[in-house]
Amino acid sequence: MTDALWYFGRGTGLVALVLLSVVVALGVGARSGRTAFGLPRFAVNLVHRNAALLAVVFLLGHVVSLYFDPYAQLRLVDLVVPFAGEYRPFWLGLGTLGLDLLLAVVVTSLLRHRIGARAWRAVHWLAYLCWPVALLHGWQTGTDGTTWWLRTVAVLCAALVAAAVAWRLSPGFERFPDRVPRKRPVLEEAR
C-alpha cells in the first residue's frame, strides 16, 4: 500500500513535469501568433490552457500521495512554504516553490478578465521560472534520480523547452505577421 503511494507519487510527478514542458512550449507557440501542427491559433491556446490544468491535476496527485506517504514525512506547511522541510529541504523546497509558482500562474490566468492584461502578463512571466525549478526538483529529489529513463525524459523535456525559449528569443519571433509594431505607451490602469 505504501509502496503504491510512493510509485503513484513519482509517476504523477514525472507526468506533471512532462506536461509542464509541453505547456511552456505551447505557451511560446501561442504567443508567436502562428498556427501550429495544422491547429488554428485558438486551438493552440486551448491546448496550452488545458494541458496546464491537467498538469495541476497531476501535481496535486503528486503532492497528496507523497503527503500521505510515510517515508517522505511531509508536513502540511511543506506543501505551501518552500525550504522548511526536514527531508532534503532545498530540493524539496524547489518542488514546493514550483507548485506555488504554478498555482499563481494558473489562478491569475483563470482570473485574467478580472485582474487585467497587465497584471496577468506580469505573473505569467513566472512560468519561465516555474519550469526550471520543477525540473531541478525532479532531477534531484526523486529516488529514481539516477535511473536512465527518468534522466532521458528530463533531458527530452529540457530540449523541448530550450528549443521553445531559443525560438522565443530569436529575432524573427516578434516579427510576425509582417507589420509595423504598435507602441505601448506606459499608461497606468488607473482609468
Binding site: 491559433r41 505577421p177 507589420r179
Partner: peptide
C-alpha cells in the same frame, strides 16, 4: 485598439462577424 495585438483568435472563433486585415 490600444490593447489589440492582432493575434487573430477572434477571427477564428467568430468568423461570422470578424475577419482579419492584411496586418492581422
Amino acid at each position: 485598439w490600444t490593447a489589440c495585438d492582432g493575434r487573430g483568435l477572434c477571427a477564428e472563433l467568430l468568423p461570422e462577424l470578424i475577419t482579419e486585415d492584411e496586418w492581422g
